Amino acid sequence: MNVYYANHPDEVKRYTTEELRHHFLVEQVFVEDDIQLSYSHVDRIIFGGVYPVSKALRLEAGDELRAKYFLERRELGIFNVGSGTGTVTVDGTVYELTPKAGMYVGKGNEEIIFAASEAGAKFYIVSTPAHHTYPTRLISYADAVHKELGEEASMNHRMLNQYIHPDVLETCQLSMGMTELMEGNGFNTMPSHTHERRMEVYFYFDMEEDTRVFHMMGQPTQTRHIIMKNEEAVISPSWSIHSGIGSKRYTFIWAMCGENQDFDDMDHLAMSDLR
């Protein structure tokens, strides 16, 4: 498990490109027949990839959590971002996840096993600390709350799909969903915003080999960017904007945790606020 520490914005504005990528970007999310996890001290979120190809993979707590099992004090969100169907077995109960299906697993479940029913199944997972046990639930694409946002004229026509969200199910603090850019559009969030009460992680995928996203971050008057390719993740602290423009269309998973779950609790910015 890779560990990422919190960074003060006064430090970040002096980072080189290499330092910025080192502290916020996760380039390798998926490794065949392995689980790759990253632990951020910003709200203690854990995120990463599970890629079962020739064998099933069990989610273990590891030394970093000092727990008897991974979900002893945590909750878990799962998305199948691959091209094939896979299964997640939770304490003996098998759940089938087709591509773009999601899942919530509550605190206290001890055995989590991932397997591929078909070639190409890939699971992107996010975990946050939890204080209460809520029911485990499979969430299909149809079960999510769908909101069509933006417009062609602003190059941000997109479909926001809320999976792990108060309008769909209860969680302790984890919110998670998937946003799909329409063909010919590039901006995912513009004008930008921050939300001091929670942090966020973006995972970009469904991109062509030569597609790149210029992910913008930093304080509104001290913006920086990280160039990202397919299946990479980026940490966004509460003080940072999180927006991107792609050279072609793409899809991304957003995951949030922190003080509250009100999706609209944002500190909105005007274009004139950005520097």
Rank of each mutant, 00 (worst) to 15 (best):
G62W: 11
H22G: 13
T85G: 01
S243G: 13
I46G: 09
H8S: 11
T179F: 08
M190F: 14
P129V: 04
F114D: 08
I227H: 04
L65Y: 11
F114W: 04
A61K: 14
P99H: 01
A6H: 13
H146K: 15
T179D: 08
G84H: 03
M266S: 09
I113M: 03
N161E: 13
E209G: 00
M207K: 04
W239K: 05
H242S: 10
V90I: 01
D143T: 07
M159R: 10
P237K: 12
F123N: 03
K13I: 09
M271D: 09
S192R: 02
T85L: 01
A67F: 14
S117A: 01
Y5G: 02
G246T: 08
M159L: 14
I139F: 03
E18S: 15
E111Y: 00
T211Q: 12
A116E: 08
R158A: 09
N7F: 07
M178R: 04
E118W: 01
G62S: 13
G244L: 09
T17W: 03
M266R: 15
Q261D: 11
Y69K: 09
S54A: 05
G186W: 07
D43W: 14
D34A: 15
V201W: 09
Y95M: 03
V12Y: 06
L160K: 12
H165F: 10
L181E: 08
S54M: 06
L274P: 01
L174S: 03
E200M: 15
G84C: 05
S238K: 14
V126D: 06
S192L: 08
K100A: 05
V105P: 00
L71H: 05
P237I: 05
V90A: 01
M1K: 08
K107D: 00
T194E: 10
L57G: 03
T189I: 10
F252T: 15
I125V: 14
G62M: 07
L138S: 08
